[in-house]
C-alpha cells in the first residue's frame, strides 16, 4: 500500500476545488490584506467629511492665518497652533535629530558588541515608555528647572522641544541605523585602507552615502513630534498666543484637539476636526517626502 494511493478518491468537484485552492485562498487573503489601505481611506474620508465643511465656511485662508480662536463666538483661527506645532517640532528636531543620529552613528560605527547589546534595547525601551510618562517627568523635573534657571513660566517651547526630542530619538535612531547599515562595507574598508581615520571615513563616506536615508529618518521623526499629544499638553502651557521666545508657553494643533474635544459641540467640534484636517495634511506631506526620499534611495541601490 503506498501513501499516495492510500488517499481517498476525490469527487470531480473536490478535485477541482483542490486545483483552484491557491486561487481561492489568495483572493480571501487579498481581501484581508486590503484592510490597512481601506482603513487609511476611511480615516481620511471621515476626518475630511467632519472637518472640511467648517473650514470652507470660515475660509481656508482665514482658518489657518487668523489668530482668533473664540469657539463660543464662532471665531476659528488656528494660526497660533500651527506656529506652536512648528516651533516645538523645530526644537525637537534639533535635539532629537542630534541625539538620534549620534546614537545611530555610535551603534553602527564605534560600538563594540557588548555595548550594542545594552544600547539597542535601551533605545527600543525608550520608544516603549508611554508618552504620558514623558510628559509627567517633563512637568515634575524639566519645567521647574527651566523656571528657576532660565525664567518664564517653565511650561514652554523649550520644555516641549526637549521632551519631544527625547521621544523622537528612537524613531530617528532606528531608521538611521538601517540607512547606515545599508552602506556597503567595501566603502568603509576602502576608505580606511586609504589611510582615513574611522571618523573621517564616517563623515566623508558613510554619512554621505546614507544621506537620503538619514533625511527620511529626520522627517519621520518630525512626523512623530508634530503628532505627539499628551506629553505636549502636559509641558507646553497651552496658551493661545503665538510664542515670542523659546521660554514662552504654546499650544499645538494636537493639544488644541485633545484639550477641547471633551466638551466641544456643534461648530466648535467641527472646527476641532478641521484642526485635525490641517494636522493630517501636514503629516501626509511629511510622510510622502520621507517615503519618496527613501524610495529613491532603494531604487538607486537596486540599480547599482
Amino acid at each position: 500500500m503506498r501513501a499516495s494511493q492510500g488517499m481517498p478518491k476525490r469527487s470531480p468537484l473536490g478535485a477541482w476545488l483542490d486545483r483552484k485552492q491557491d486561487l481561492f485562498i489568495s483572493s480571501i487573503l487579498l481581501v484581508v490584506a486590503l484592510s490597512a489601505i481601506s482603513g487609511l481611506v476611511v480615516i481620511t474620508a471621515f476626518i475630511f467629511k467632519e472637518g472640511l465643511p467648517i473650514m470652507l465656511q470660515v475660509g481656508v485662508g482665514k482658518f489657518v492665518s487668523s489668530s482668533d480662536w473664540y469657539p463660543a463666538e464662532g471665531h476659528f483661527g488656528i494660526f497660533p497652533m500651527i506656529m506652536g506645532s512648528l516651533a516645538v517640532t523645530a526644537g525637537a528636531l534639533v535635539i532629537g535629530g542630534v541625539l538620534g543620529l549620534g546614537c545611530a552613528v555610535v551603534l553602527t560605527q564605534f560600538c563594540p558588541r557588548w555595548a550594542v547589546s545594552i544600547l539597542k534595547p535601551s533605545i527600543e525601551l525608550l520608544a516603549g515608555i508611554p508618552s504620558v510618562v514623558y510628559g509627567f517627568i517633563g512637568v515634575v523635573i524639566l519645567v521647574p528647572m527651566i523656571r528657576v534657571h532660565l525664567g518664564g513660566p517653565g511650561l514652554s517651547v523649550l520644555a516641549s522641544s526637549i521632551v519631544l526630542g527625547i521621544m523622537m530619538l528612537p524613531t530617528v535612531t532606528s531608521i538611521s541605523v538601517d540607512a547606515l547599515q545599508a552602506v556597503p562595507k567595501a566603502y568603509r574598508d576602502g576608505s580606511i585602507a586609504l589611510g582615513a581615520t574611522h571618523w573621517q571615513t564616517t563623515r566623508m563616506v558613510i554619512l554621505k552615502a546614507s544621506r537620503s536615508g538619514l533625511v527620511a529618518a529626520m522627517i519621520l521623526g518630525m512626523g512623530r513630534a508634530v503628532g505627539e499629544t499628551m506629553a505636549v499638553i502636559m509641558v507646553a502651557g497651552n496658551t493661545l498666543d503665538v510664542p515670542d521666545s523659546i521660554l514662552a508657553p504654546v499650544r499645538t494643533l494636537t493639544s488644541n484637539i485633545a484639550l477641547e474635544m471633551g466638551y466641544a459641540a456643534g461648530d466648535h467640534r467641527k472646527a476641532l476636526f478641521a484642526t485635525g484636517v490641517v494636522l493630517f495634511v501636514i503629516i501626509m506631506i511629511l510622510n510622502t517626502i520621507a517615503l519618496t526620499v527613501s524610495r529613491r534611495r532603494s531604487r538607486r541601490k537596486s540599480g547599482a
Partner: peptide
C-alpha cells in the same frame, strides 16, 4: 506596493487623529 504604502501611511498618522476618527466612526457612525 500599494498595500505597503497604505500600511506605511497608517503608521505615520498621529494618535489624536485616530482618536478623532474612532470617535466619529466607531462610536458615532
Amino acid at each position: 506596493a500599494f498595500i505597503r504604502f497604505g500600511a506605511d501611511c497608517l503608521a505615520g498618522i498621529p494618535s489624536i487623529i485616530f482618536g478623532l476618527f474612532g470617535f466619529v466612526f466607531f462610536a458615532d457612525t
